[in-house]
Nucleic acid binder design. Structure first.
Lengths: 334, 334
DNA sequence: CTGAAAGCGCTTACAG
DNA sequence: CTGAAAGCGCTTACAG
């Protein structure tokens, strides 16, 4: 069943049928009704590939999500997908490895002419290199700031990671903690982890504590397993620690599990805080105090910015979404 | 940059270029080399939409995942994606609501001619109705058995939910539990929850306990929140319960949280077991005893069956993947 | 308001 | 082994 069949069946030409399908003006009410009826009856759906070929590209909004075990991203993905489908956008999702190359992935979709816009859920800015010249469709990076990139088609939305992390550390020092170890991503100035690292440093310093990277910071992937292993290594060193900052809730969960396995209690022996404010932080035992990222804002603004790009081709914008500390039961005063 | 440009640049015709691109025989080594070199230099990528139009359909394997907060599905998705990309398949993922209509979603991809095959991650068989006539591409349903459907293009892989659930209940009764409440999905004979429900029943009966649906089974969505609320309601009833079976790890987590919030302890006051064997069950405090589904097997067999369909168009198969109990710290003897 | 025709960028018989 | 041509199913000026 093609547009040609519908034309024949309706007695009109394929041009008129096409106009009806695409809700274009310049068709008599009579023709529209008749054609619509026939389309309805025959269950006709235009061939997407032909349309995309003719239109020189698809109209799918592609979401590239980095990391498969990231419930924080999943929660954002959930919101974004919902918002986009309310706008009747066709959305497709690609999930790549935490260490994957999101730009290479995005390029595929551009070359393949299927996507009209891309949302990156997580990003390593180091990968946003000269290949971006080819990536000439609207993009939004969610949860990482793309401000310094200064590409005119790449907007971004994220929380102020530096400030949020600083506040998280200060929260602990406010409870009297001095021996704090922070566990977060590899420190590269092109990654989100770097802002958080700077935030840690500031948090320590503002609280009058010295920040020694070797002592106070441990690189750790954002997973339960990594949080567990890193904490285990820390505990084996047998140094005095009263609080651990996991720069994701997954790390915090792994940390708590490792502490318990070492025969200690959270928060009685060691306090633990997380980052992201994902659902598990509210359902873990003990509830985990976590720096919550405003998932709704991130999703909403990401979609808004993308739509702006798509419809008005304005310059790009870089927004902050709110963060706020969610208190749980995993911190005690020392 | 099109195939025409490559033809001009290389001095050959577009037919020859096309043959080179598609690795078809009947091209001289000389021509192949020259054309390949030019394609390389110009960074040319054939227009996917034109190819798909010509070939009467895309070659994407589409995965339709039901439910956005399902880390069990995410873990399977992870494996399947990996396996498919090792086979150099193009894969795309659609995430729909837990209560969404996966068949309607699949139909979109068929009508749109983008997918060559579909993997359903989770399914409500009630939706697999006469619309399936139109869904005439290879399909695999993962985690739900599609055996009774008897469509010749729909294979399936899942654990033996009935037996697994029975064993889970028996595990508890083996530890002396008699007052057991099971929390699982709505009981409809077209859903996975039904097999598990039957398994419960069997487990009770085989242990010499009466199974009263009103007393021993509570319908509950597969989420932390639902597990929490359902358990809260249960505890408020103030009936004697020594063990709760959550038919997903998320339900079990919610249950534990609710029990703790009621001032009781797991497993001291109430034992809790989960289902799925997801990562969180191993990192929760206490570690949750859970009926593990063999994620690797499910993923591997799903991909194998799909490939069989795609390449040999054999009849469909319905496979069981292994299940095995993972003991944690959430059960005590009574 | 409507239709005939060109053309999007490929693939694939067909003829050489 | 190679090229010219038809055609996949649409959209969109263009002419009427």
């Amino acid at each position: 069943m093609t547009i040609k069949d519908i034309a024949k069946l309706s007695g009109y030409g394929i041009g008129t049928v096409s106009r009806v399908i695409n809700k274009q003006p310049g068709v008599s009410e009579k023709a529209r009704e008749k054609i619509l009826k026939i389309i309805e009856e025959s269950n006709f759906e235009p061939n997407g590939n032909a349309r995309k070929l003719k239109r020189c590209g698809g109209n799918t909004v592609t979401i590239i999500m980095k990391g498969r075990h990231n419930s924080f991203f999943m929660e954002i993905l959930d919101r974004i997908t919902l918002l986009l489908s309310e706008l009747e956008e066709v959305v497709s999702c690609q999930i790549i490895d935490e260490d994957g190359d999101e730009v290479a992935e995005a390029l595929k979709f551009v070359r393949d002419k299927t996507s009209k816009a891309i949302i990156f859920l997580g990003a390593n800015l180091a990968l946003f290199d000269e290949r971006m010249n080819e990536l000439d469709i609207p993009c939004v990076v969610a949860t990482t700031s793309a401000k310094e990139l200064a590409f005119d088609n790449v907007s971004s939305v994220c929380v102020d990671d530096e400030t949020a992390t600083m506040e998280l550390v200060q929260y602990l020092t406010g409870y009297g903690h001095k021996d704090i170890v922070v566990m977060g991503g590899e420190i590269s100035d092109k990654q989100i982890s770097f802002s958080r690292y700077l935030g840690c440093k500031k948090g320590f310093e503002k609280s009058g504590l010295e920040f020694d990277p070797d002592k106070n910071y441990m690189a750790c992937r954002y997973s339960y397993e990594a949080g567990y292993e890193t904490t285990k290594r820390l505990l084996e060193k047998n140094i005095h620690v009263t609080a651990i900052v996991g720069l994701s809730d997954t790390i915090a969960v792994g940390a708590i599990r490792a502490i318990e396995d070492a025969g200690k209690k959270v928060p009685d022996d060691i306090s633990v805080v997380g980052f992201d404010g994902t659902v598990i932080s509210r359902f873990y035992t003990p509830r985990i105090t976590s720096m919550g990222q405003d998932i709704n804002s991130i999703a909403k603004r990401s979609v808004e910015l993308l739509m702006k790009h798509i419809h008005y081709t304005l310059g790009c914008e870089h927004d902050y979404a709110p963060h706020n500390l969610i208190e749980g039961e995993s911190v005690r005063r020392v």
